[in-house]
Amino acid sequence: MILDLDNPIHKLAIECIRGYWGNGIDRYNRLRRAGYNYEEMQEVVNQICRVTRGAK
């Protein structure tokens, strides 16, 4: 995965990782209220975390 900060989904994922959207159920509720698909966003967050940790 190539992180593209011009991509709004990648920007949002970084915000999630930094905790701007809360954690756990709080993050889930905030993302859903803002109109985002939590499951899709969490997958992007997981992909970024795997890459930054060096996992394949």
Rank of each mutant, 00 (worst) to 15 (best):
V51H: 09
V44M: 10
V51C: 09
G35Q: 00
N29R: 05
Q42G: 02
D26S: 10
V51F: 15
N23V: 10
R30W: 14
Q42K: 09
P8Y: 00
D6E: 15
D26Q: 05
E40P: 00
N46F: 06
I14G: 04
Y28F: 07
E39S: 11
Y28I: 06
D6C: 04
Y28C: 02
R18D: 14
R53Q: 12
I9G: 07
N37H: 08
C16I: 12
R53K: 11
N7H: 14
A55L: 06
R30D: 09
G22A: 05
E39Q: 12
R18N: 13
N7E: 07
E39V: 12
R30A: 03
N29H: 04
E40I: 02
I14M: 15
R50D: 14
V44Y: 06
A13N: 06
G24P: 03
E43K: 14
A55M: 10
P8N: 09
Y36Q: 04
M1V: 06
N46Y: 05
M1C: 04
G19H: 05
N7S: 14
P8S: 11
R53P: 02
Y20N: 04
C49T: 10
L3K: 09
V45A: 04
Q47A: 14
Y28V: 00
R50T: 02
P8E: 10
V45M: 00
R53S: 13
C16W: 01
I48D: 12
E40F: 01
W21E: 06
G54I: 03
N23L: 07
I9R: 04
V45L: 08
G35I: 03
K56V: 15
D26Y: 02
Q47E: 11
Y20P: 00
E40W: 01
W21D: 00
R27Y: 01
G22F: 11
N37C: 05
R32H: 08
R50F: 08
I14L: 13
I25V: 07
A13T: 12
K11G: 11
L31K: 00
Q42P: 01
R30Y: 08
H10R: 05
E15K: 08
I9M: 10
C49W: 00
A34F: 07
G19F: 02
I9S: 11
T52K: 03
Y28M: 07
R18Q: 12
Q42N: 11
N37P: 05
Y28D: 07
V51W: 09
A55D: 11
I2C: 05
I14R: 13
G19E: 02
R53A: 14
K11L: 09
I25N: 03
Y20S: 04
N46T: 06
M41D: 11
I25R: 02
Y20M: 10
C16S: 10
R50K: 13
N46E: 15
E15W: 01
A13S: 14
A55P: 00
G24L: 09
G35E: 01
L12H: 01
C49S: 10
